[in-house]
Design a protein around this nucleic acid. Structure first.
Lengths: 346, 346
DNA sequence: TTGTAAGCGTTATCAG
DNA sequence: CTGATAACGCTTACAA
């Protein structure tokens, strides 16, 4: 059994700050300043150090720097998932904005589980991140404690809870429910059903449902929620559509689905059953997933400001830690809005 | 102008290993062992230390640990993009597998640019990652040098180049082209066109094209490539379909698109033009994007082993650094295969 | 099985 | 503007 690759004991091999300093004939701290406060150096030193850095191919050791300065150039982000169509744009925009300022993204998924979120936060804390970004405001008690005591900027994205302490960058899910009902009601639909998400833990979807229910009631309608038992979203949408259509004369004139996956399942099930959409039943989704415009009929949906959330979250982080200058205080409350995309299905 | 939040100078405030050691009445190194080689401790110490860790809510400082041991529990990964439908599953699976073993993911996107990849690698190196994962084998000379001298496991995913030094976890794009032609040829199609990706930098797509061309020629056909000028993939697909259909009697019987986005654009353009698919023209994509089964007709496509790539890449990394035990050497060559998903469009 | 001493590569602090 | 020195919190190497 060949022994493992003989790992270098200590940091042997890599070019260090000190090596650069010797090469340039200056002290180590000057090389440090070359990277962190170049303005404080004379042109002479800056040139000599620059040359030495080039020659030796020096890459600053962020780990050592992080230890010395008690705050590293990483930002931890926890999202429910990476591979779903929802958060990808936010992650992408967030990561790109950070990278443009020399900060790195540490990423983990929670799968809508508070426990997983907690352990991700705990793990991140070990890296002394410059900031922490969480999705929504549903955290375990331990997580709340962790972030309260963390003494670093915390941002909550995708949701908007002004009464909470962390920086908020998101939109009102409740308002999405309101907008959905208003849109359909404005187009003449009256019997409007809401199909919930079968996936547990997606509490934001319940806020959308509440917005739906309250608004429909205000308009004189009777809220009617359907909860699928199928767990795969596509199947759940199909199940909902079939169950609702089986009501005969009592069937809904329009259905709001908790997200586009459910809506797509419903749409296709409706077609298979010979239903004309939107004439027989309108369908409205949420998320504007990439396939929405490609369905036949194309799916009307409500589009969340995903990229914008990522960009603004990153900006607020960078402002909080002083990397991006600003006048006054960091904007803590960032309420963005969704857009109703009226396509063919509603 | 209120001064920035008065950041704590040094690591003031956080619970340290030493604090835990004092609380438990042991030496610091014992607490270190509690986390890293618990088997070496007596039951007595283990219990006392465990209690102290609980009480104080200690979270190990990975930065300090990383500095001391010259290798941290992070793995850097560079992908072309996060928000596209292609790499998301790989990232997700990779991240989850790492997290299950206490390792964190440091993520960056290259947008198919070798320069961006290079700067991401450089930035990662500053974090002393346990390993580096890159997408494909198209790197700048500087990146090649960087990874060659990095003295850490390097994995290349999504592609398969056995002659290269890094661990390979992927599939043969050339073979995808071969499979595509064979599938269509087997169903009786003869005049088969390949529509290239209009996005620059996606060299793997050219390998698929080569597989197509060689195989078609072998079968006695004449390769026929179409290169769209539109840059948005959906539009590019539409453009290709319209241009190809304008050939009248000379139009292709089947079209292989470089990816599902292009294929979807082509599919819808064909329908809008009154074409019957696949009777008038078959359409085959690549990627099995989430919308593929939802199109009408549903899109036949070739599905890459995205999740599997992520899982195996993570496993190889963990084996390379000794976190996951194995007998013998780490498997350097991991050739996975794609599946032709025959749906309605081909 | 447990402990002591030294040092990882950088930055904060204080002096010049 | 430049530098000397002492941390930062942990792990390696060696000893008991």
């Amino acid at each position: 059994m060949a022994s493992q690759t003989p790992r270098k004991r200590r940091g042997a091999g890599r070019v260090t700050l000190t090596a650069v300093a010797e090469r340039a004939g200056v002290s180590a701290i000057s090389v440090s300043r070359y990277f962190n406060q170049p303005a404080q150096l004379s042109d002479d030193l800056r040139e000599r150090i620059g040359a030495a850095v080039e020659e030796l191919g020096y890459v600053p050791n962020q780990v050592a720097g992080g230890l010395a300065s008690a705050r590293g150039r990483v930002v931890g982000m926890v999202v429910p998932n990476i591979s779903g169509p929802i958060f990808a744009d936010t992650i992408q925009a967030f990561s790109d904005t950070l990278a443009a300022h020399g900060y790195q993204l540490l990423l983990a998924s929670s799968y809508f589980s508070e426990d997983k979120e907690e352990s991700a936060v705990r793990a991140f804390l070990g890296w002394n991140p410059a900031a922490l970004v969480l999705t929504s405001h549903f955290h375990s008690a331990a997580t709340e404690k962790l972030i309260a005591g963390a003494d670093m900027p915390v941002v909550e994205v995708w949701d908007y809870q002004p009464e909470r302490a962390p920086i908020q960058v998101g939109f009102s899910h409740y308002q999405v429910g309101v907008d959905a009902v208003r849109h359909l009601h404005g187009k003449g639909y009256r019997r409007i059903t809401f199909v919930q998400n079968s996936a547990p833990g997606d509490f934001s979807a319940l806020d959308r449902r509440d917005g739906y229910a309250d608004t429909l009631r205000e308009l004189g309608g009777e809220p009617w929620m359907f909860v699928p038992t199928e767990s795969a979203p596509f199947e759940a949408g199909r199940q909902a559509m079939e169950a609702l259509m089986a009501r005969g004369a009592q069937r809904p004139e329009a259905i709001i689905f908790a997200n586009d996956n459910l809506a797509a399942g419903g749409l296709l099930a409706g077609q298979r059953a010979g239903l004309k959409i939107p004439e027989d039943c309108a369908v409205l989704g949420f998320g504007d997933y990439p396939f929405a415009p490609m369905l036949l009929p194309s799916l009307s949906t409500i589009k969340p400001p995903a990229r914008e959330i990522g960009e603004i979250a990153a900006l607020r982080v960078l402002q909080s830690i002083g990397v991006v200058p600003l006048e006054g205080a960091v904007e803590r409350l960032n309420l963005l809005s969704c857009r109703v995309l009226e396509r063919e299905s509603a």
